[in-house]
Design a protein around this nucleic acid. Sequence first.
DNA 1: TTTTTCACTTGCATTTTGCAAGTTGGTTGT
DNA 2: ACAACCAACTTGCAAAATGCAAGTGAAAAA
Lengths: 124, 124
Amino acid sequence: MLGDRWSLLIIRDMMLLGRRTFKEFLSSYERPASNILADRLRRLKAYGIIRAKRDRSDGRKLIYLLTPKGMDLAPVLTEMVLWAGKHEKTENRPLIRLMQKDKEKFLAQIRQRWAQNKISPPSQ
Amino acid sequence: MLGDRWSLLIIRDMMLLGRRTFKEFLSSYERPASNILADRLRRLKAYGIIRAKRDRSDGRKLIYLLTPKGMDLAPVLTEMVLWAGKHEKTENRPLIRLMQKDKEKFLAQIRQRWAQNKISPPSQ
DNA sequence: TTTTTCACTTGCATTTTGCAAGTTGGTTGT
DNA sequence: ACAACCAACTTGCAAAATGCAAGTGAAAAA
């Protein structure tokens, strides 16, 4: 389900960077092609990992959100980011330091932010 | 580095199931093609995630081992297996129960087993 | 010495990915 | 009301990755 180049990156962008719309995913660091992005969003939806709803204030926009199943990937993503932070060059060091400092607290914060629909990227 | 169908499965087989040789990886549950498997092993080696050494007692065999960098993926793999166990149909329920029971203990056991080169699959 | 086994490689068909250029439908500006 | 615009896709096609089946060469077993 997640064994391709883009799925986990999309989920990371949603969970950790607060991305929510097609356009936002398109302009992510790794820049997926629009047709592939559309396909991956479709698949993640079919798997029950994300869902989409119309934007109340702009009927063109679709807001993509993680389902509970998708949110349960938070520990996976966290461990992957920590691993990459330890062994590879990465940007967003502050985020990594936050994770390292207290992993459980970080996960709790992410879940809480999500529950409130305050989907902004984590800040110190 | 890990964003393809096979890399994480190979690492899972090494770390959790004690697989070590080309032939053993070939006969894994998901059955990679031999050329792809060869390519993935080459890449994982180039990334410093695995290494290979000749078998002392059988000069045809190569024994693939995780490097420290590869072993550091243990938390990632554990979280992925737990996620899959919660949300998808999986075999090897006993392994999952072991992980759930005490995650840290499980990880410590894996690391220890690896340090001793006792690379057999975790039991009960 | 012949046959197996092991870790690959090779050639080729199929599938997936990626790029660039649309299309559709809602929105904004005049 | 109408044009220009924007967001989320789709389409056509080239390029790359994947998969299958059948080798190959070196080492071990019979």
